[in-house]
Structure formats: C-alpha cells, structure tokens
C-alpha cells in the first residue's frame, strides 16, 4: 500500500498525545467533582427553588 508506514518513536509527539490524554482524565475527574459540588446550586438557580427533577 503506498505511503503505509510503521509509527516510529518520537518523544515530542508522545508528550503531545500524553498531554491530551492527561487533560482528558483531569477534565473528567475535575468536572465530575465540580458537578457534585455546584450541581445542586446551579439547578436551583436555573429551575428556581427546591428541585428534585433529576
């Protein structure tokens, strides 16, 4: 197949992809924590008063 190549080790590219992977994990954990902390407050703000619609 023309142009088919085996990926070679490149530390800079590995760091780049590793950074994206790390960001994804941090965002998953971070936003999860923020949702638990501020979720009920935001729901009250948006829907108004006590809400158990979730």
């Amino acid at each position: 197949m023309p142009g088919l190549e085996i990926p070679t080790w490149d530390p800079e590219t590995a760091l780049l992809i590793g950074t994206i992977l790390l960001e994804a994990i941090v965002l998953y954990v971070g936003y999860g924590g923020l949702e638990r902390l501020f979720g009920p407050y935001l729901m009250n703000l948006l829907v108004g008063g006590e809400s158990n619609a979730q």
């Binding site: 490149d10 590219t13 780049l16 992809i17 994206i20 998953y28």
Partner: peptide, 26 residues
C-alpha cells in the same frame, strides 16, 4: 490516539486548538 500520534509526527496536531476545544467539550 494512534491517528493523532501519526498526524502529530507530521506537525498536524496543534495543542492550541485541541486543549481549549476539549476544555469546552468535556
């Protein structure tokens, strides 16, 4: 991951685009 790595080797992945997109999309 592999596709990004291959594109990254050719300079095709720009963290200045991906990081803020991911920050908003998550």
């Amino acid at each position: 991951g592999l596709g990004s790595y291959l594109y990254g080797q050719g300079g095709g992945v720009n963290l200045g685009i991906v990081a803020p997109l991911l920050f908003g999309s998550a």
